[in-house]
């Protein structure tokens, strides 16, 4: 009798996860394996042949794709450190007794609620070479116009700047909640021992905040390696491929040229890079992880 009830409960467990898990299986796990499989073919929506590793060989001779990897790394290096430092600074400033704290917090988070399309539109106008606001300010100061998104030297920086603007608030909220989790008595004890502000920051805030920083860092890495929307809308990868990223290459090869086998091989690279980032970070960030176990 008891045995039967147990089996019954077990089936109910499967039943409850079934809708969610089946959709997840069908639309996430199967596509992961399918991408890997497709990367060994020349599928183009009509027909496919097994081509072995030729997509991978082609990929590492493809100057545009290699450039897109380098661009993605460059974008990450430009955004992640700046976002983390700015977000941490703002969070530290807001984590004091302040007037209008709620106002600042609400406002700083605001850019994050806009869609990437809307954000891109706003910045397109700021960046426009002929009628954009930034160049108007420069001209007003007697300086030459800058091709914010039309010169190969500036374009990636411009894409990075608008992404930083978009992301700081979100990460600030994460840091703020991390800071509020640090027990007050640690600071009080340090004050009694005569610690300076810097010492408190260095020896209490930084180590206590490590799990948050770790989480913010991992998420920022994952997000920046997928950067796509702003690239497609603001620069479409140009000029001269100076802003094309891995995700943008996947999109172009897959859905503009319909080289789906080749795009799948690039998708596998993206998958592996993100997997590697997560695993490496996880190994280094032990002790303060977010797995909740």
């Amino acid at each position: 009798m008891k045995q039967r009830k147990k089996i019954n409960n077990e089936n109910i467990g499967y039943l409850l996860i079934a809708p969610s898990y089946l959709i997840y299986l069908l639309f996430v796990l199967v596509p992961v394996l399918w991408t890997v499989a497709m990367s060994f073919t020349d599928y183009n929506l009509r027909e496919w042949h097994f081509t072995g590793i030729s997509n991978y060989i082609q990929m590492f001779q493809d100057k545009v794709f290699l450039k897109s990897i380098w661009n993605t790394i460059r974008y990450s290096l430009m955004t992640i450190p700046v976002v983390i430092v700015l977000a941490l600074c703002l969070a530290m400033l807001l984590n004091q007794r302040l007037k209008a704290k709620g106002f600042f917090r609400t406002l700083f988070y605001l850019p994050n609620i806009f869609s990437m399309v809307a954000v891109s539109m706003a910045w397109l106008y700021l960046y426009d070479t002929n009628s954009g606001i930034l160049n108007r300010i420069l001209n007003g100061l007697g300086l030459e116009s800058v091709g914010w998104v039309s010169s190969t030297t500036m374009s990636m920086i411009s894409v990075a700047v608008m992404s930083i603007w978009n992301q700081v608030g979100y990460n600030m909220i994460l840091f703020l909640s991390g800071l509020q989790g640090i027990p007050e008595h640690l600071y009080e004890a340090a004050s009694i021992d005569g610690a300076t502000r810097w010492q408190k920051f260095r020896h209490i805030t930084i180590p206590q905040l490590a799990p948050t920083t770790f989480f913010v860092f991992v998420m920022a890495c994952i997000h920046s390696f997928q950067v796509f929307g702003q690239v497609l809308i603001v620069t479409n990868g140009g000029p001269v491929n100076s802003t094309t990223t891995i995700a943008h290459q996947i999109y172009k090869n897959g859905f503009e040229y319909f080289h789906m086998g080749y795009a799948s091989a690039q998708a596998v690279v993206l998958l592996l890079i993100i997997l590697a980032i997560t695993v490496v970070n996880w190994k280094h960030g032990k002790g303060g992880t977010n797995d909740g176990e």
Binding site: F27, W34, T35, F255, L270, L275, T278
Partner: peptide, 16 residues
């Protein structure tokens, strides 16, 4: 699955 980005599975999703 939390590490899988949309861009890396979009092609099979589209084909499906």
């Amino acid at each position: 699955g939390m590490m899988v980005s949309p861009q890396s599975i979009i092609i099979p999703q589209y084909v499906m």
